[in-house]
């Protein structure tokens, strides 16, 4: 479904993504793990068109989308729930959700949007309860639900999730992770960026480990979560010892 080949992205003269190749097959949940500054968010932003790559190819469903405008990328079926949620605080929950469907058209537009709104409210009953409330007054967990709900309103086939567990209480993290699993079971393919590597590996099929803009390891999530190096570096086991090799 998504094939990335030899992607390079720079911020000015600084290379952030260095020759990254990865793929996501239809129906998969794939996670990207790595330390702060490894380039995970930049990679997602490059896929969704918010940052232009300096070179490389991103093919989605046979279409080259590298460097394409973000609204066109959304129309093709990719939407992103950004890190830090980025919701519109002065607008209501409902208005935020409807904004997620801004690009949708066709004669059954309103009907389809209403159906998907119901779907989001079924997934997140809290959003239904607070649908008229200003989004800025929601708790962190609710804002995260709103960010994911807004991304779903774009009716994506591939959902990019950037740190959905960031800043949430452990119980809410589990709720969000369960929701991601549910979305995947409903047929949405997911590319997940997470610092909580343990949780991310638990709900994904495969994973890539990003280190200073390069992929240094990949594999089935079950293998990566058992890998000593991954456990030390990203799962909180003896972090200090990563450098004490020889």
């Amino acid at each position: 479904m998504l094939n990335i080949r030899n992607l390079h992205t720079k911020y000015g003269p600084i290379s952030v993504i260095r020759n990254v190749s990865l793929h996501v097959d239809e129906g998969e949940t794939v996670c990207l793990i790595g330390a702060n500054g490894a380039g995970k968010t930049t990679l997602l932003l490059t896929i969704s068109g918010l940052i232009k790559p300096s070179s490389g190819s991103i093919v989605f469903d046979g279409n080259e989308i590298s460097g394409m405008r973000p609204e066109r990328v959304v129309q093709l079926g990719i939407s992103q729930a950004p890190e830090g949620r980025q919701i519109f605080a002065p607008l209501s929950v409902l208005e935020n959700l409807r904004l997620g469907a801004f690009h949708r058209h066709g004669k059954n537009r309103e009907e389809n949007i209403a159906r998907d709104l119901n779907e989001v409210f079924r997934l997140f009953p809290r959003l239904h309860e607070k649908r008229e409330q200003m989004a800025g007054t929601l708790s962190g967990g609710e804002q995260q639900m709103l960010a994911i709900g807004r991304a779903i309103m774009a009716n994506p086939r591939l959902l990019l999730l950037d740190e959905p567990s960031l800043g949430l209480a452990p119980r809410l993290v589990d709720t969000i992770m369960d929701t991601i699993k549910t979305l995947n079971n409903r047929g949405i393919t997911i590319l997940l960026v997470e610092q909580n590597a343990k949780k991310a590996l638990k709900i994904s099929n495969r994973g890539y480990v990003l280190e200073t803009g390069r992929i240094i390891l990949q594999g089935k999530s079950s293998e990566l979560s058992e890998d000593s190096e991954v456990r030390r570096a990203y799962l909180g086991k003896d972090y200090k010892e990563i450098s004490q090799r020889h």
């Binding site: 190749s21 990865l22 890539y208 390069r214 992929i215 990949q218």
Partner: peptide
């Protein structure tokens, strides 16, 4: 897949 594996 081979490109990815070779690069990593």
């Amino acid at each position: 897949w081979h490109t990815e594996l070779l690069q990593s």
